[in-house]
Design a protein around this nucleic acid. Structure first.
Lengths: 191, 191
DNA sequence: ACCTGAACACCGTTCAAGT
DNA sequence: ACCTGAACACCGTTCAAGT
């Protein structure tokens, strides 16, 4: 009982740090948020953060992992009907955390921990997008997938995830964004 | 004459700094290259760099501007026949300077100078890609552009530049990279 | 005009010291 | 187990001083 109590306290404190980090990283960027500023926002001392996280990168990865988990829950709740809506919804999610995504790419150069997290994220993301594509194609043609085979089909998730990252990174405004998602889905039916 | 002499000397010294910066930024990343290390590589003192450049970001933009100029010259010389080859050639160019592109995205968050440079770069890049697309389509159908109009055609350069950035940022290996370029061109004919 | 050494205000991280 | 203050080795940038 006492063990559970302290373990929960620790998780709560950890979450408080992550709450502050999520807000500051988005508002001022990752590089623009010092450990000092983060500690102050969480009501602690910079050195205390190192009791809960290995380093600043570990805070970044923890923030993103938590955001991805809650986004997955939101997605299930939204129950979006069309593939275009789903892609557009994804861009909206990443939009709100654009500075974090840029930070991941920047830090992946220097840190193998970040680089490996990034690789795992894209593997999972590509698998999910591929499942979406397969589902969409089978609804159109119940007999099977169109010509081209698996190698050709594997290109689609790549193009889509690059497009989503690109739209977010360059802040493409809403009307053009929807049009681009529609084009991606249209090309899927055609190509 | 004396004026020309000093002006040329100044440009030469500037170029020496940019030579060192181009190598170090690519090798160790932008954040991983200190002004101290850059100065040492250029055989000067950190403070001297500020005589030639406003700040570290200005060095980054100057390096990239110079690289883009020389890449444009190389492109004209290469005279690549197919659109797929041209796209693949572009990814090869950006591949060698991937750390610089990540740095631009990271710094664009904090610096309006970098952000504006980045915007101008993409405007020019999209216009160039659109011209390539138009040329390709007219070669196929001499009577004109296929259905969809300009709004629909404008999506293509965006998807392509996002795809190129994505392939480079994620280090997609050669065979998949060529296949993806082929898919992009194939979808153009179809979509 | 060009270059420097010393200094400034930071940064992420460590560590001995406290409770 | 948890948290801190002081310290460490950096960082980009400025500025008075030299030539």
């Amino acid at each position: 009982m006492a063990r559970n109590r302290t373990a929960q306290d620790r998780d709560e404190k950890r979450d408080e740090i992550l709450d502050a980090a999520a807000q500051l990283f988005v508002e001022h960027g990752y590089a623009g948020t010092s450990m000092n500023a983060l500690a102050k926002a969480a009501g602690i001392t910079p050195t205390t953060i190192y009791w809960y996280f290995d380093d600043k990168d570990a805070v970044l990865l923890a923030v993103l992992s938590r955001l991805m988990r809650s986004a997955a829950a939101d997605y299930d709740e939204a129950a979006l009907p069309t593939l275009t809506d789903r892609l557009l919804w994804l861009t909206g999610i990443f939009d709100r955390i654009a500075p974090l995504i840029v930070a991941i790419h920047a830090r992946a150069q220097a840190s193998s921990t970040v680089s490996e997290w990034h690789d795992r994220f894209h593997a999972a993301s590509d698998a999910w997008l591929l499942a979406q594509v397969r589902e969409h194609l089978e609804a159109d043609r119940p007999t099977g997938v169109p010509a081209g085979g698996d190698e050709r089909l594997a290109q689609i998730p790549r193009i889509w995830s690059y497009a989503i990252e690109g739209m977010v990174a360059h802040g493409l405004p809403e009307p053009e964004r929807r049009a681009l998602c529609e084009t991606l889905v249209r090309q899927l039916a055609a190509g």
